[in-house]
Simulated scan of single mutants.
Amino acid sequence: MRRIVILAEGAFTLHRAKTATGVIRYSKDEILAVIDSTHMGKDVAQALEVPLGEGIPMVQDIHEALRLKPDTLMIGIAPQGGALPASWRWQLLTAIEHGLDIISGLHTFLADDDELREAAEKKGVTLWDVRRAPDQTRVAQFTPHRPGSHTVLMVGSDCSAGKMTVALELERVARQRGLDGAFLATGQTGIMISNDGLPIDHLISDFIAGMVEEKVLEMSNAHEWVFVEGQGALTHPGYSPVTLGLIHGSVPDAMIFCHLATAKTIDGYERCPMPSLSRLIQINEDAINWIRQDGQCKVVGLALMTVGLSEEEARVAIQQAEEETGLPTTDVIRFGAEKLMDALQQHFSTR
C-alpha cells in the first residue's frame, strides 16, 4: 500500500488528467492529495464536479502535500507527446529530496533524465517509468487459448472512450458473481492500478501482437475470464496501428464497444467525423475475423460514456444506441456493468 500524492498542476480535469482520475477511482493505494494550485481549497469531487474523490484535498504544491506524509509522487497526466512539463521539474526534485518514489506514465522516461536520475540515486528512491517496455522478441503465433477460458477485449470509437473503466468494472462484477476474472492492463493508468500489464504504445509494431498474445495466454491459463483493456481505435488517424495489434494479439472471444455519447468527430481531428455506431462495430468485428475466420467473435454489448448529460438525457442516449445497434447498452459508471456481464454470459452459454 503506497501513500500517494498526484501531481496534476494546472491540468486536473476529467479529460486532461484521466491518469489521475483512473487511479483515484480504482487504485488500492491510499491517495492523499492532488497537487493543482488552480483548485486549491477544494476536494477532488468539487474540482471535477463529479462524485469522485470526495474528501481528497486539492493542494497548492509539493510542500503542502508533504505535510500528509506521502511515500510516492505520481504524475497524473499523460499528454499527447508525453513530455514532462518544464514547470513541474522542481516539484519532482523536491519530492525526491524528501525520499518519495516517483511514478510516471509519460512517454519521456524520468530515469533517462540525468538530473532526476542522479537525484534519485543519491536519495535511494525509485523512478518507475510505467511505459518502459519489456524486452521484445515475440512475434504472434496465433496460439489457441485454453478451452473454456473467455477473453473479452474492450474496443472503441476513440481514445478516452472508457475502455479501461469498462474492463475494470466487468472484472469487479465477474468477481461479485463468483467468477474467476482478471484485468489485463495495456496502458499506463491500468498498469499503475494493477501493478502489471503491457505498455502497448511503447512496443515495436512487429511485436505488439506477439507480446499481447503471450500475456493473454498466460492469464487465460490461470483465469476463467480475462478482460483486456483496449487502446485507441481502428478509425483513429494516429493510433489505429496499436489497436489492430491489440485485436490480433488478444484474439478475443467477444468484444465490448466503448463510445462517448456526445462525440461527433475523433477528438482533436475535426475533419474525421464519427461513423455510425453500427459501422464502427462492423469494422471491429471484421478486423478480428480477418484472422479468426470462424465469425464467432462479436461485439456483444455497448458501453456509453454519458458524462455531461443529465440522467434523463443519458437514458435517452442509451435507448437510442440500443435501437440502432440491437445491443444491450449502459453507462457502467452511472448504471453499473451488470447488463454487459449478463450479455457476455449469455453469449458464451449459447456457443
Rank of each mutant, 00 (worst) to 15 (best):
A86Y: 08
N221P: 01
G336C: 01
G245W: 13
A174T: 05
Q46P: 03
A317S: 14
T189P: 01
G268L: 00
D29Q: 03
A133H: 08
P144I: 01
P70Q: 06
L168E: 08
V228L: 10
T94C: 12
H202T: 15
E121C: 09
R279D: 14
M154F: 03
Q46H: 00
G162L: 10
L244F: 12
V152N: 04
T189L: 06
A140G: 15
L302P: 02
M274I: 01
R131T: 01
L106K: 03
C159A: 15
T137Y: 12
A111G: 01
R351I: 06
E313K: 12
P252H: 07
F142E: 10
S310W: 06
L84P: 08
D286C: 08
K28L: 08
L110S: 09
M154W: 00
A209H: 00
I283T: 13
P70E: 08
H15C: 06
F109I: 03
H107K: 04
T38N: 12
H63T: 12
T262H: 12
H259Q: 14
I288D: 04
E171G: 10
A83Q: 14
S310T: 13
M74A: 13
R175P: 12
W290D: 07
A233M: 10
L277F: 10
I291D: 13
A167G: 04
M274A: 06
G301L: 05
S27T: 15
V251E: 12
T94F: 02
H107A: 06
D101S: 03
M341L: 15
D101M: 00
Q282K: 15
T72A: 04
F227W: 13
T143K: 07
K123A: 11
D112H: 15
I200K: 07
V155C: 11
K42P: 01
H236M: 03
D129Y: 07
I247S: 11
R117F: 14
P273T: 06
S104L: 10
M305E: 09
A47T: 04
T306K: 10
Q293T: 13
G53E: 00
A86M: 12
H63F: 08
R271Q: 14
G190Y: 04
P199L: 04
V155G: 00
G148N: 04
Q91C: 05
T19H: 08
T13N: 05
K215I: 05
A11V: 07
E218M: 14
G10P: 04
E324W: 11
I288E: 08
V155I: 09
Q293M: 13
P70H: 09
V307C: 08
F335Q: 02
G76H: 00
D342I: 07
T306F: 09
G232T: 06
M305D: 15
F335H: 04
Q91W: 03
N289R: 09
D36C: 02
F257A: 11
P134D: 00
E324V: 07
K18T: 11
T151D: 07
A321R: 02
L309H: 09
R131C: 02
G187R: 00
L198Q: 05
M219I: 13
D267M: 15
I96C: 12
L217C: 02
